[in-house]
Amino acid sequence: MSAISVLDRVERFLIGLFGTAALAVGTYQVIGRYVDQRIAFAYGEEVVVYFTVWAVFLATSQLVRTDGHVRPDLVLRLLPPQGQRWFEIFNCCVALAFCGGLTWFALEVATGSFDLDERSSTGLEFPMWIYYASIPVGAGLMSVRYALRLYRYLFEFDPSTMIITTAEH
């Protein structure tokens, strides 16, 4: 298995795991609140946020892989294959610039939070750097995906699979 398909599997597994964990904690909180007060866990909603945001940022990387980020493709559809290719190359460059920058600055946010020992202001006192780390990780993975995508459009362009067609489904 190539490194990238290992990455795919790990990502998907973690997205599913964190999402399910969020669901489990959310449910547990409801039960704790309304069914049996003895097992109540006051900070459930907070933990749901941390799990979900981690899952969401990992998913942003998967979305680059599957071209799932929503975008208006009106103009692209009107272009011939080579035109689309150059537009996609341009898009990859803009995406790399943004995601690269986001990775860098979000890393600053996360490490800053770690250095300050920032905790959530609830009684849970959750170390916030763990939450913040989801963004540089997600943005970093997106950068990798966009770099791969750029490479494919530059050097392995295949009009039969890599363009948007106007055909109705």
Binding site: E118, S121, M128
Partner: peptide
């Protein structure tokens, strides 16, 4: 002050 406790307990 209640929102600052995460940084300054």
């Amino acid at each position: 002050n209640w929102v600052l406790t995460g940084l300054v307990p």
